[in-house]
């Protein structure tokens, strides 16, 4: 049920990808997303697939785990494919009643599907191989230059890491409260909408109360440890680039160059 959500989930394994500096992974993901939208022919997508396949293999994350994350976007995927397939004007391949499928439509639908699939898989590889803590560290350091523009980068990163940390806690809490109310005869399986909404009150009120209580406790605990925000704060494990990170940057730039070349010459 609630446990099926793979958003932001981490898959523990010992691989080069896991050990890479989070900044490299963030940058790599960004580059990958850009190349997906740069590419407009199948050779380019073949290269993108190759890049993805190699990364997944090296990361030691089971392919089934990555594919599971795709379930959530299936509806979106179908929607965009169907829309593009039937709504694009051009050379008609075949038509049924008033709906006609065009050559251009097939092309665009295929590109769209590939883009969405690669997009999800590419970004989930990053979250699957990076712990939430590392990810926010990477974001904080990688976006550090924004501080010049008075953007509170540290605070934003801290909020993000707290939010990520609380997802599993609140899910567990929801599960507990649901069980407790079921023991008092609450019915969460009713089909009627009005009943369904009404059944949420005994779940949502305690959940909100507990979220606030936890937030309050956390704030107290942080204050007790003299937390004052990002200024002058040092890290226990500061991010330092290693040789493999430099190599990874080279590979990423090589891939970007290849995609651009393919776009120009094919």
């Amino acid at each position: 049920m609630l446990r099926d959500i793979t958003l932001g989930q981490y898959y523990p394994a010992d691989s080069v990808i896991h050990r890479l500096d989070p900044r490299v992974k963030l940058f790599g993901t960004l580059v990958y997303l850009v190349t997906l939208f740069l590419t407009d022919n199948f050779i380019g997508y073949l290269l993108a697939l190759l890049f993805l396949a190699v990364t997944v293999t090296v990361s030691k994350v089971p392919v089934s785990f990555i594919l599971r994350g795709l379930k959530a976007v299936m509806v979106l995927l179908l929607f965009s494919v169907v829309l593009n397939l039937f709504m694009t004007k051009g050379e008609v391949v075949f038509s049924i009643w008033k709906i006609s499928v065009t050559k251009e439509g097939i092309y665009i639908a295929a590109f769209m599907a590939i883009r969405i699939l690669f997009l999800i898989m590419g970004s989930s590889i990053m979250t699957l191989t990076t712990t939430p803590n590392n990810l926010t560290d990477g974001l904080e350091k990688g976006l550090g230059f924004l501080k010049i523009f008075r953007v509170p980068v540290h605070e934003i990163a801290m909020m993000m890491s707290i939010a990520l940390r609380f997802i599993p806690i609140l899910m567990e809490e929801t599960d507990k409260i649901m069980k407790a109310q079921m023991a008092r005869g609450a019915d969460f399986e009713s089909k009627k909408l009005t009943k369904k909404v009404k059944a949420l009150i005994p779940l949502l009120v305690p959940l909100f109360v507990s979220a606030f209580r936890r937030a309050n406790d956390l704030a107290t605990a942080m204050e007790a440890r003299c937390y004052r925000g990002g200024k002058g704060r040092t890290k226990m494990k500061p991010l330092v680039y290693k040789k493999r990170d430099a190599l990874a940057y080279l590979i990423i730039f090589g891939y970007l160059a290849a995609v651009i070349l393919i776009k120009i010459y094919f």
């Binding site: 507990k176 409260i177 069980k179 407790a180 109310q181 023991a183 008092r184 009150i201 005994p202 009120v205 305690p206 109360v209 507990s210």
Partner: peptide
Amino acid sequence: VGLVFQYPEHQLF
């Protein structure tokens, strides 16, 4: 069979 969970006060609403 009435079941009172751990920390049942968290279910008050």
